[in-house]
């Protein structure tokens, strides 16, 4: 099985450690990962902000880039959902592009989903060193559209990644929402503040966020408020617990 890493633009800019962790975790379970060099952005910012035709151009690039692979894996829940749920709809039904986009969608996975549903790896076999960290987990809202919302924490818990605590009101959006974060900054930050308060109430010092955007938003708010909070991806949580990342 040839597996490609879909890096996502945001993770390359803001969270390269999440990408390293993804590669290391996949190698740990015996999967060799390739990184198609020419990948850039999946087009979500364009699609979400009124440029569907331009997003379609990027979708076509992605389809071509990932054509040689059997599976495409990404640590970013939101970008994954765009490929899965939006790409095909960018092209007329029954067009060749539509079918190609649907084919890409069918082989694209968020990392935890890939481990759990494609490789069918029992999380107990990923149990690493016991770790004193207290964590809590917030899932990206876009995982809803691929039926994976709320699936990250149980998997990590079973893999014994530290002391993982339930996040109250996990279902509510953190307020990121892409450009929404700057279009309605007061609403965005108010939602972020509510999320941070819930995180604080768990006593956790590390947040696992299954999307790079949500992670950057919450980490940025916490930093501005001088709240001590480390924000990592599910891949990093696994890689750290397995001793693959320092």
């Amino acid at each position: 099985m040839r597996v490609a890493l879909f890096t996502t633009c945001l993770a390359e800019a803001l969270a390269p450690r999440a990408l390293k962790a993804t590669v290391l975790v996949l190698e740990h379970v015996g999967v060799t990962v390739e990184v198609p060099d020419a990948q850039t952005c999946c087009g979500q910012p364009l699609l979400s902000n009124g440029f569907p035709a331009d997003a379609a151009l990027l979708a076509r690039r992605m389809v071509e880039l990932f054509a040689p692979y059997d599976a495409v894996v990404t640590p970013s829940g939101s970008c994954c959902s765009v490929v899965r749920e939006k790409y095909a709809s960018l092209f007329p039904e029954d067009s060749a592009d539509h079918h190609a986009a649907a084919a890409l969608a069918a082989k694209t996975y968020e990392l935890i989903e890939f481990l759990e549903t494609k490789l069918m790896i029992d999380p107990a076999t990923l149990r690493g060193k016991s770790c004193a960290t207290t964590l809590t987990c917030h899932d990206a809202c876009h995982l809803r559209s691929i039926n994976r919302h709320g699936c990250t924490a149980p998997y990590l818990k079973a893999a014994c990644c530290g002391d993982l605590r339930d996040l109250p009101d996990m279902a509510q959006c953190c307020g990121f929402g892409g450009m929404f974060s700057t279009q309605f900054p007061e609403v965005s930050t108010a939602l972020g503040a509510e999320k941070l308060a819930h995180i604080a109430s768990t006593g956790a010092t590390t947040l696992v966020a299954s999307d790079t955007g949500c992670a950057a938003h919450l980490a940025g708010l916490a930093h501005r408020e001088r709240m001590t909070l480390r924000v990592i991806s599910p891949a990093e949580a696994l890689a750290e617990s397995l001793g693959l990342l320092a």
Partner: peptide, 29 residues
Amino acid sequence: WTKSRDLGVATGESFREWFKEHKRSGGAP
């Protein structure tokens, strides 16, 4: 963005640089 919150940017080695090195060294961490 930074009107309302800080922006944390990774300034170390890029993922692509790391990955190249990682492959060259045979994939061992």
